[in-house]
Each structure stands twice: as C-alpha cells, then as structure tokens.
C-alpha cells in the first residue's frame, strides 16, 4: 500500500484538477514532485508531435457519422458531450498514462516491501531498497529539500538523519533486508 497518490491523481494535479489533500501531499513530497515533472515533460513531448491532417480526419468523421446516421436515434446533449468530449479525453489520458508507464516502468512511487506490516520508502524511486535510499534521504535532510512524511521511519514526528540511519539499518537486515522492488 503506497502513501503516495496514484499516477492518475498526479496527472490531475498537473492539470490543476486534483483534490486538496493530493495538492498538499505533492507540495511536501519530493518524489511526487519528480513524478509530476515527468508527466509534464511527457505531455509537452506529446504536444510537440507533428499535427495530423485535419482534412483527413474530417473525411473519416463524416463517413462514420453518415454510416451511423440511419441507425441512431435522436441523441441527448449529454450523450453528444460524452461522445465528443469525454471519450476522446479519456482515451488521450489512457494513452498518456500508458506511454508514461512504458517509458518509466520502474519509476513510480512504489514502496518496497520489507519489514512486516510496513512498506519501506523507495526514496530515490528506483524500485529497489538499498543503501542508496538512505543516502538520498540523508542528502535531502542535509540540503533542506522537501521531505516526505512517510520517511519518518522512527515515528518521532520528524524526518531527519535518524530516519536515514533507521532505513540503513533495515536494508542490512539478514532476515528481511530488501533489494528488489
């Protein structure tokens, strides 16, 4: 179970449609900020793709509409809205998210299961739990970067170098130390 918002929620955050709690989380979470930045970059790349020939699609659109005109009943404005706006938007979102996960299959805010009953934070987002996560956490603390509340591994109400050391101690556990994500 992840403490981070799902990618769909991060996409909504990117487009300014996320809930308040998601906004608050992203504002305080370096991992999610990085994910949002990647989504933004990907969306920008898609926008930069060469435009299609609108005339071609207009012809196809007319042909399809003509084909279904004889069978369709009078449609409500709501159905027209769904067909013309929401379905293409949902398809575009699916393509966007699918492309993102294909390009970044291991970069999600995926926690790495380690200690029983609690997921360890994959601080550097590489899908593995190892000493580099402790290093990333310590550097974030030392350099005043944003710290995720989930990094408070010793439950003392703050994230500091003690939590980085706690994480380091967990990765060396011979009984439950994790490496794979």
């Amino acid at each position: 179970m992840s403490d981070h918002p799902e990618t769909v929620e991060l996409e909504l955050y990117r487009t300014g449609e996320a809930d308040v709690d998601v906004c608050q989380h992203v504002a305080a979470c370096a991992v999610c900020q990085e994910q949002v930045a990647r989504l933004d970059s990907l969306a920008g790349s898609l926008n930069d793709l060469p435009a299609s020939d609108p005339a071609l699609f207009a012809d196809v659109d007319r042909a399809v509409l003509a084909a279904i005109a004889g069978t369709s009943e009078r449609r409500s404005p709501f159905l027209v809205l769904v067909r013309r706006r929401l379905i293409p938007a949902a398809a575009a979102a699916l393509v966007l998210l699918g492309t993102f996960w294909v390009l970044n299959p291991r970069t999600g805010p995926a926690p790495v299961a380690n200690a029983p009953g609690r997921a360890e934070p994959d601080v550097n987002g590489d899908g593995r739990l190892d000493i580099l996560d402790a290093l990333a956490m310590a550097q974030a603390v030392e350099r005043g970067r944003r710290l995720a509340p989930a990094w408070d591994l010793n439950d003392d109400g703050r994230v500091d170098t003690k939590d980085a050391n706690t994480l380091a101690q967990r990765v060396v556990s011979v009984s439950g130390g994790g490496t794979e994500g």
Binding site: A134, T161, Q169, V172, V174
Partner: peptide, 21 residues
C-alpha cells in the same frame, strides 16, 4: 562502523552498508 545486522555475526552471512552525506 557500517550498519549491520547482529544476527549475521554467526549465521554465515553478514551485510555491511554505510553512506556519507
């Protein structure tokens, strides 16, 4: 001293890890 699990001191395998900021 690096981090290690005391259970590894007699079990045939010990993991050592350390980081420095």
């Amino acid at each position: 001293p690096p981090h290690y699990d005391p259970k590894g001191m007699a079990g045939g395998r010990i993991t050592l890890a350390a980081f420095s900021a």
